[in-house]
Nucleic acid binder design. Structure first.
Length: 195
DNA sequence: ACGATGATAATCT
DNA sequence: GATTATCATCGTT
């Protein structure tokens, strides 16, 4: 046990900045988290759980400190940390990080990465570098093959609009993206044309 | 540096 | 059948 799962019984908006600087390991590769996004659940128009519980979102209603993994754009896996008590949907999407050990392993999984900076820059790249699959959905982060070490002390961070969220949930009314300023592994901000 | 585009499939309506 | 919490690649500055 490397963290107290009770810590994640709070809303994802509170947990998101605390995950910055934390180290997530899986199967020989360790990533220092540098960018995340908070999703509040049923009250959040940008959240998968906005329209209630479905087969996919049921994990977000599960116990905190577990993995919510979903399949995206036909070829990518993205990973969240479930927050809030069981029964309440809330999660923090892991958007990017820096490989701090197991670079060779990560490179084997991320053969298209041209440099080490790109190994885990972006949510789908991060899961790929760690070897996270759809079958890791609902996994406990306190048990093998995972290991999560929360940052010992709070980190300086910045906030802004969430990336890639369509509709009203993506506007500046929901500045729920958090990142460590100056980090190479933080994805550049992109404006998304909305038709 | 940035913008456009195709790839590709689980989930939901 | 539509939508999508994306990435790699190619083109242009």
């Amino acid at each position: 046990m490397v963290f107290d799962a009770e810590q994640f019984s709070r809303p994802s908006l509170e947990m998101a900045p605390l995950l910055l600087g934390s180290i997530l390991s899986r199967d020989g590769v360790s990533v220092r988290i540098t960018e995340v996004e908070a999703y509040l659940g049923e009250s959040d128009p940008g959240s998968h759980a906005f329209r209630g519980i479905t087969r996919r979102t049921s994990t977000m209603y599960g116990p905190p400190g577990h993995v919510y993994a979903y399949f995206s754009y036909g070829m990518h896996v993205c990973a969240n940390v479930v927050c809030s008590p069981e029964g309440t949907a809330s999660a923090v999407l892991l958007r990017g990080g820096e490989i701090v050990s197991g670079v060779a392993e990560a490179r084997q999984r991320r053969t298209t990465a041209r440099n080490d900076r790109d190994l885990a820059r972006g949510p789908a790249r991060l899961t790929r570098a760690l070897g996270i699959l759809l079958t890791d959905d609902t996994s406990d982060l306190n048990a093998a093959p995972f290991d999560l070490e929360l940052a010992a002390s709070p980190v300086i961070f910045m906030t802004g609009p969430r990336t890639g969220v369509a509709g009203v949930g993506g506007g500046i009314n929901f500045p729920w993206r958090f990142w460590i300023p100056g980090e190479e592994s933080v994805s550049p901000y992109r404006r998304h044309p909305r038709g």
